[in-house]
Design a protein around this nucleic acid. Structure first.
Lengths: 253, 253
DNA sequence: CGACGTTTTGAAGCTGATCAATCTTTGTGG
DNA sequence: CCACAAAGATTGATCAGCTTCAAAACGTCG
């Protein structure tokens, strides 16, 4: 069932049948389901598990004393929250659902066992962690330098490509199941301005957005308009040399 | 000589004499010195080493096609660039010096050896990595939600506390060796507005800034004004239980 | 149908950007 | 030790992008 995670990791390296089974087992241990606006974990809590999003969208966020909320990152299906979080004593931010979410709680011990026995998974999780850090850096650039239209366009490019990596796009389309207010909290813009900026992107034909269905007629055009350079997602199959080949037939499915 | 790194890590766990010697040796292998505005590594380069800043200030940054520059994070003495960066094939950002900088290049092999032989160092580096990620997240909040004055005040709190952790403060003062334009590139503000915001902070008595000498008369007051919550720096000695105690006298110096 | 959440629109106001000039500091060479 | 150059800090004036507030339209679901 953690097929999205597997798809994602296979962008980096090919996994053997046994690798996939190990992930399967780990993700099956403890499964939970929550509704939108519910929290998976809160600032101040002791992080006991690594959470794996199986379905739905969640986010990291932080709320200032006066109510301002910043969404720090989006969690899409297949995303894993910090694999070493248990080194720290308490959460410095919260993780909450934006849509109905199904996720797996993976214990520290399980994760340790899986990585000890499956070096390719270890490598792939490293890659995933580094890409997550790169995305966070890119958001810094996004918030610091880009205009509203560039910023939003950039986000949509990123989301589309990430969803494609986990098999959740269809042609030029994908879902965008969050409210405009959520997008605003993520981009540091008011919901009103998000609305106007979306209209601007629609007006210039860069996106088609009907309800929760997003279509990007030309990803290249949206990328160009948003100064989007996909290099930070590191989709260049760096880990080719780690492709599983220890058993005939492995990794071909 | 990597005394700043050692100071920093000892905020998390106590290190034995042998731990410190290992860091000493690793940091001594290859030392380099560069001037301000020179790069340590550039976007597109193949990351061969982990860089340890021994002296001076550097930064991660990214430059957009049209020249806009965002400083993504500051590297202070004792800071280590991503310890697992070699998993990726090429840098998605650059690292450059803001002042004259001395740094050590640590090879992948050396780092692997040190961590294999020194579990406390491994743990401490994990803590360091997670704190670095938390800082990046906090910058996202900073850029997305805080006003110019809050943003700048927040940054100054963070820098002061980080410098204090590596023994580079004196009483309520520390150096601030970067230009206002650099601060602007880091905070997503124009240099003009940085200037005016600094004057505002000076005017309200929250900071004293003469040349490159920064004094924060009341850190608590600046924190309050900037909505600064230090929890994300995880300075609560989480790793107490890992304190080195395998040899009498260890860790007490 | 009615209610609630979400999107859309309009108008007014503020924060911070831009541009351009001046002042100050630092560093360098004579 | 002074003169000069270059970098950085400061100031003023104008402008643009985005926020805020408020209301209306739209959708969706019990």
């Amino acid at each position: 069932m953690p097929r999205h995670l597997i798809s994602k990791l296979e962008q980096f390296t090919r996994l053997s049948v046994s690798d996939k089974q190990a992930l399967e087992t780990a993700a099956g241990e403890k499964r939970r389901r929550i509704g939108p606006r519910e929290d998976i974990i809160r600032e101040g809590d002791d992080p006991a598990f690594v959470n794996l999003i199986l379905d739905g969208w969640a986010c990291r966020y932080k709320q200032l004393e006066d109510g301002r909320r910043q969404i720090i990152s989006f969690f899409l299906p297949g995303d894993l929250c910090d694999t070493h979080i248990y080194v720290l004593r308490e959460m410095d931010h919260s993780i909450g659902a934006l849509t109905p979410v199904t996720y797996a709680e993976i214990s520290r011990e399980t994760l340790a066992r899986v990585t000890a026995e499956h070096p390719r998974i270890t490598q792939a999780l490293w890659w995933d962690t580094l890409v997550a850090a790169a995305i966070q850096r890119e958001w810094t650039v996004n918030l610091g330098q880009r205009t509203a239209a560039e910023r939003l366009g950039h986000l949509l490019c990123e989301i589309f490509i990430r969803l494609r990596g986990v098999g959740l796009t269809e042609g030029h389309s994908c879902v965008l199941p969050v409210t405009q207010a959520d997008l605003g909290d993520a981009m540091g813009l008011s919901n009103v301005h998000i609305n106007r900026t979306l209209q601007e992107l629609r007006g210039s034909g860069l996106i088609v957005l009907k309800g929760r269905q997003l279509t990007i007629p030309s990803l290249a055009a949206l990328q160009a308009a948003s100064l989007f350079n996909p290099n930070y997602l590191h989709l260049d199959r760096v880990g080719r040399h780690l492709d599983a080949n220890d058993q005939a037939g492995d990794g071909t499915d």
